[in-house]
């Protein structure tokens, strides 16, 4: 009897643990923990084509663009954009934040944790914090 009760408790514990684990097991492209170094590598793979080697918005693609990419080193402009908005712009593209279609949605190749890490990297580039407000 006691063995059976023990087995029952064990089963419940396994079930609870698996429920806890479920969100972590959801398909993402990379580990949840994205290091600052990995974020920089992502930036230097996906972002510099338009935002430039120095993040100033002057990448190899900009010459014929109708709208110039954002300068990520512009502290004043970047501090006016909150993290949520930056995340949305990266994940869903410019039109999701009423900006240009030339900023495409990266949600198909970057995981949410990677995009969060990129937002942190942008804060490092601009050496600025988000201002409180609508963004």
């Amino acid at each position: 009897m006691s063995t059976r009760a023990g087995q029952g408790r064990f089963a419940i514990a396994v079930l609870l643990l698996s429920l806890l684990w479920a969100p972590l097991a959801a398909p993402v492209h990379a580990d949840d923990a994205v290091s600052p170094r990995a974020a920089e590598l992502l930036y230097r793979t996906y972002c510099i084509q338009c935002h430039g080697l120095h993040g100033t918005g002057s990448g190899i693609n900009v010459r014929d663009m109708a709208v110039q990419p954002r300068d990520h080193t512009d502290s004043e402009a970047m501090s006016g954009l909150n993290d949520e908005r930056l995340f949305k712009a990266i994940r869903e593209g410019g039109p999701a934040v009423t900006k240009s279609v030339l900023m495409p949605p990266w949600g198909g190749v970057l995981s949410d944790p990677e995009i969060h890490a990129l937002v942190k990297y942008l804060r490092k580039l601009c050496a600025c914090e988000e201002k409180r407000g609508p963004g």
């Binding site: 084509q49 014929d64 663009m65 109708a66 279609v101 030339l102």
Partner: peptide, 21 residues
């Protein structure tokens, strides 16, 4: 190609016109 989908950002649609990555 240019305005609605923004393909031009990264691709050339003519010699010496468009993005380079």
């Amino acid at each position: 190609f240019d305005k609605f989908k923004g393909c031009i950002a990264c691709h050339q649609s003519g010699r010496d016109y468009g993005g380079l990555s």
